[in-house]
Simulated assay, not measured.
Amino acid sequence: MVRLHSLLDNDFYKFTMQYAVIKLFPRAQARYQFINRGKHQYPAGFDVCLREAIDQMAELRLTPAEKVFFADTCPYIDPTYFDFLQGYRYDPNEVVIKQKGSELSVHIEGYWYRTILWEVPIMALICQLYYEMTGSQRVSDEEVTNIVTQKMDKYDTLHITIADFGTRRRHSYDVHDLVIQTLKNHPSSTFIGTSNVHFAMKYKTKPIGTHAHEWFMFHAAKYGYKMANLLGLEHWADVYRGDLGIALSDTYTTEAFFKQFDKKLTKLFDGVRHDSGDAIEFAEKTIDHYRSKGIDPLSKTIIFSDGLDYEKVERIVHFCEGKIGHSFGIGTDFTNDVGLPRMNIVLKMTEAQPDEDEWTPVIKLSDEPMKHTGSPEEIEMAIKYLQIDEHA
């Protein structure tokens, strides 16, 4: 049966956001919805198997060894959080699963500080179950190792740093495990860590991440679109005081982000993360922004993480070299390159209830319009309100 092996089998930024939510927004509630971008057809009984796997998650516990690792790795997080996490239990009642024919729906609702951990593991479970229940045969373990090794040999020639960002759409736990083992054993310094805290502990590497789109989506629900990026980053800095200093830039398009990324925040944050739209255009805008603030772009870093493979990375490196710092987070091209079609699914926050206010719809305005999420009416309103020119 498909199941998770650890409470820490999740992306690092889910825990860092959870800590910030507990400190700043303990009464906030959130709703999330599964989006089947790839129009995958789910076999009969898929909902039953997913339900069983999610119910099993209630048994997960933070072990004493995991608590020590996490606390030692993150001295900037209060010890009270790790005590909280030791007592945290997934509540499967927060997750509603339905299937009609081959269509799957997943809805999550509850206090934000609790529900924030569901997204990544549920997506990983859906992927692994899909491949198992459709009888899809992947390449051998030896071939997986060879594929990763060959990619790393090529990346080594670029003299860059790379992290694994592939938990949510991985083929399976076993493939992910093998990938991290191969990356860790590769004889170079190119691989620097993983977004997955469980594997960071298992393979003695660094957990990597800061925050995700939902952080800013919630801030838009509470404070409005024009203040979402500014206050989202201000609050992040209030909690982490200069640690975890990579800012996600595309929740409401890069254009809107840089308008709110003022000189104080530009100096305070170590860099920005690119997650949609043309990477070279983004790099140009970022370099121009730093220069306009009197900051040497080479003192800052862009983390690129949007659907990367070697060709894309090579193109980005050739542009950025000597102009701005750069590093890369690679997802499914590591964890789901096994001879099968890769899944295209997301699970996004759709509504937020700040404090005890009314439920408010939330959206994401990606730099790639096809990746917008939320109701069309709310998206149209936000585009007009933020004065975004999608044809620029």
Score class of each variant (00 low, 15 high):
Ser375Gln: 14
Trp118Leu: 13
Asp164Tyr: 03
Leu233Gln: 13
Tyr385Thr: 12
Ile126Ser: 08
Val144Gly: 06
Gly45Arg: 02
Cys74Leu: 14
Ile246Asn: 00
Tyr81Asn: 04
Val68Cys: 11
Val175Gln: 04
Glu321Val: 12
Lys100Gly: 06
Asp309Phe: 10
Arg31Gln: 10
Val179Ser: 12
Glu390Lys: 02
Phe165Trp: 14
Leu158Cys: 09
Asn36Gln: 01
Pro75Asp: 07
His274Arg: 03
Phe269Asn: 02
Asp270Tyr: 10
Arg138Phe: 07
Glu94Val: 05
Phe46Ala: 02
Ala237His: 15
Tyr130Lys: 12
Phe218Trp: 11
Ala382Arg: 01
Pro369Cys: 02
Ile316Phe: 01
Phe46Leu: 04
Ala212Asn: 04
Asn93Leu: 11
Ile147Asn: 10
Leu308Thr: 03
Ala247Lys: 09
Ile22Asp: 07
Asp11Lys: 01
Leu158Lys: 05
Val239Arg: 07
Pro43Met: 01
Glu119His: 06
Gly325Trp: 02
Tyr113Lys: 15
Gln99Leu: 11
Phe334Thr: 05
Asp389Lys: 00
Glu234Arg: 11
Pro297Lys: 14
Phe334Glu: 05
Met57Thr: 11
Ile180Cys: 10
Glu214Cys: 04
Gly245Asp: 12
Gly331Val: 09
Thr301Glu: 10
Glu132Leu: 15
Asp357Asn: 09
Ala212Pro: 00
Gln18Ala: 12
Asp357Ala: 11
Asn93Phe: 02
Asn344Lys: 15
Cys320Asp: 06
Ser195Gln: 13
Arg37Ala: 02
Asp238Lys: 15
Phe69Glu: 01
Asp355Val: 06
Leu24Tyr: 02
Phe319Gly: 07
Thr190Ser: 04
Lys259Leu: 13
Ala200Leu: 01
Tyr90Gln: 00
Lys263Arg: 09
Cys127Asp: 09
